[in-house]
Simulated scan of single mutants.
Amino acid sequence: MTRTYRIAAIPGDGIGAEVVGAGQKVLQALAKLDGGFTLDITGFDWGSERYRRTGAFMPGEGTDVLRSFDAILFGAVGAPDLPDHLSLWGLRLQICQTLDQYANVRPARMLPGITSPLRNVEAGDLDWVIVRENSEGEYSGQGGRSHRGLGCEVATEVSIFTRVGIERIMRFAFELARSRPRKRLTVVTKSNAQRHGMVLWDEIASEIASEFPDVVWDRMLVDAMTVRMTMDPGSLDVIVATNLHADILSDLAAALSGSIGLAPTANLNPERSAPSMFEPIHGSAFDITGKGTANPIATFWSAAMMLEHLGETAAAERLMRAIERVTADAENHSPDLGGSATTEEITSATIRAIGLNAT
């Protein structure tokens, strides 16, 4: 019996529409070839253009609408003429927090044919998964401003760390580390300076570690972590960090693995009480919007993560093999990788590679 999955497609802004469109083509080609599942994709015009028309990036009942879907494919949000905090909180964070997508998973590795800016690094030395706590921490949205415009104006941004929030992301990260060959986890912290929330983070990490005696783990201050990622990449495997710290470190990881245009993301609701959301991390990139040169590989990789989450493991693996076949050929490299291939050319090459991988 053919399995049907309902997918919500939210292209958003800038190159989001270009790469999500490319992702849909690749997914439909994969589903047609596989024959065991189909994708019922519904598009939503949520984003900055809707905000300009209506004053809201998405309708008030938007997240309730999304609950009826099996997964969400997201592009990007943000426009040059709108403050970034409006667009981020009006769409992406609204979805992530309301649907309790508390585990943000960002793999980073050197794909075939891609060169790292790091000297003498081997592909096997840079194969990480960064787990980002995605619901609280520094991005809790707590705080405010008072005495606006006066000399005594005050703004507060309160980081929230809860035992339940830390426990669940730590357990998720340890379980992920256990599932990988090296079984290693690095816990990122800043407890020398942040003596309350981050000390709780450290204490709970130690508690959860006792449940996973087969996982080798260590703890690293976030500033020292940037040095370790660049100087000793082979010492790292799975990395877990707070909302802010992992946000920064995952961009560094993407750059070190070749390009932010290659980097995928899964915003997971591990308990599956609501749909999870999958997206490239590169943003709306208005400087290249409409030029047809956006790199769609990050979206394709995100789509593979979506298929794996849906239980279509064979299709996910086939898509990843196709991605690797495409990146291995320099003719398929987009401008961010030093090439001249267009979004359409990379998409067509990936669809051809999917067919080749089926034989």
Rank of each mutant, 00 (worst) to 15 (best):
Gly144Pro: 01
Asp287Met: 03
Ala253Gly: 15
Phe161Asn: 05
Arg52Glu: 07
Cys152Leu: 10
Pro275Ile: 10
Asn104Leu: 10
Ile10Gln: 03
Gly143Thr: 09
Leu337Thr: 05
Leu252His: 09
Ile297Glu: 01
Leu126Asp: 08
Glu345Met: 11
Lys291Cys: 04
His333Cys: 02
Thr289Gln: 14
Gln101Arg: 08
Ser116Arg: 13
Glu167Gly: 01
Gly137Val: 03
Val26Ala: 09
Arg52Ser: 08
Ala241Glu: 02
Pro117Met: 15
Ala254Gly: 10
His147Gly: 10
Glu211Gly: 09
Met1Thr: 03
Gly283Asp: 04
Asn295Val: 02
Ile260Asp: 01
Leu39Ser: 03
Lys183Phe: 07
Glu312Lys: 01
Arg228Glu: 14
Arg272Leu: 13
Trp217Asp: 04
Phe161Cys: 00
Val158Glu: 08
Ile166Ser: 07
His85Ala: 03
Thr343Trp: 04
Thr4Trp: 06
Asp232Leu: 10
Gly62Arg: 08
Ala314Ile: 05
Arg52Thr: 08
Leu185Cys: 06
Asp237Ala: 00
Leu126Cys: 09
Gly311Thr: 04
Ala294Glu: 00
Arg53Phe: 10
Ser340Asp: 13
Asn104Cys: 15
Arg148Gly: 11
Leu93Trp: 13
Thr54Lys: 14
Ala209Leu: 12
Ala155Trp: 03
Lys25Tyr: 07
Gly113Arg: 08
Arg67Lys: 15
Ser179Ala: 12
Gly124Leu: 05
Pro80Asp: 05
Asp64Trp: 01
Ile15Val: 11
Glu271Gly: 14
Tyr51Gln: 06
Glu61Val: 10
Leu88Asp: 01
Leu236Ala: 03
Val105Asp: 00
Glu279Phe: 13
Asp202Pro: 05
Phe161Glu: 00
Gly141Phe: 09
Ser48Glu: 01
Gln24Arg: 12
Arg109Trp: 14
Thr265Arg: 02
Ile15Cys: 05
